[in-house]
Simulated scan of single mutants.
Amino acid sequence: MYKHILVTVAYDEGHDASPSLRVARALADAGAQISLIHVMDPPPSFAISYLPDGWRDEMHDAIEADLTTLAGDWENTAVHVTEGDAAQQILDVAQMQGVDCIVIASHRPGTQGLFLGSTATKVVSRTQCAVHVVRRAT
């Protein structure tokens, strides 16, 4: 169905990327490119002075290695590790890479999610390509 799928991967507590990866496999055309993305949250400004030198590079490298492992045996894959606003980074990478479908996980929103909006909601409302939202168990 799709030639280039971007799969978002979060590392928050209790999150399992395998449902999103299964959906991406089911939606992918033969020979499709599958890209995995994780957006690192910037640290709070008060904490930066307490972090060891090189922490950002070490975290980036560890996440990149994990995404590569998650990609597993797919033949045509890429991984992206960025930092900043998650929704905007996902949208920017999708546009720059010519993605035709984004697979993103979402949990059932609580009160905070309803007022502030979630990353999935922002991506769905702003993207120019198809989006498949994978419902996470609550």
Rank of each mutant, 00 (worst) to 15 (best):
E75P: 04
I90M: 02
S45L: 14
H80P: 04
V81A: 05
T69R: 15
P19S: 06
D29H: 11
M40G: 01
D66V: 09
A28Y: 01
E75A: 14
H38E: 06
A62L: 09
A30T: 14
Q88W: 06
Y50S: 15
D53E: 15
L21V: 11
V39S: 07
G84A: 08
L36R: 03
A94G: 04
P44V: 13
Y50I: 05
A24L: 02
E83T: 15
A26E: 12
M40W: 01
P19E: 04
G72R: 08
S49P: 10
G54D: 02
L51I: 08
M96N: 13
V23Q: 12
T77H: 08
H38D: 08
A71D: 09
P43L: 13
H80G: 06
I37A: 01
L67N: 01
A30H: 15
L27D: 00
G31M: 07
D16W: 04
Q88I: 07
I90R: 00
H60D: 08
D73I: 04
D73M: 06
G31W: 07
Q88T: 12
P42T: 08
A86V: 13
L27Q: 09
I90L: 05
I63Q: 04
I63T: 13
I34F: 03
A32S: 08
S45H: 11
L21F: 11
D29V: 02
H80K: 12
S45Y: 13
L51H: 06
P44A: 13
I63R: 07
R56D: 06
A30G: 12
D61E: 14
M59S: 11
M96T: 09
A17T: 03
E75N: 12
P52M: 10
G31A: 07
G72C: 08
M40A: 05
Q95D: 13
H60K: 14
A32C: 11
I48Y: 09
L51Y: 11
S20V: 03
I63P: 02
H38V: 08
A78P: 05
L51V: 05
T77K: 07
V39H: 03
R22D: 15
E64A: 13
P44H: 13
L70P: 00
S49R: 14
Q89Y: 05
T77V: 14
S35Y: 00
I63E: 04
D53L: 12
A94T: 00
L70A: 04
E75K: 12
Q89N: 15
L21R: 06
L67T: 03
N76Y: 12
N76P: 06
V81K: 06
S20D: 07
S49D: 14
I90D: 00
D57I: 02
G54M: 02
L51F: 06
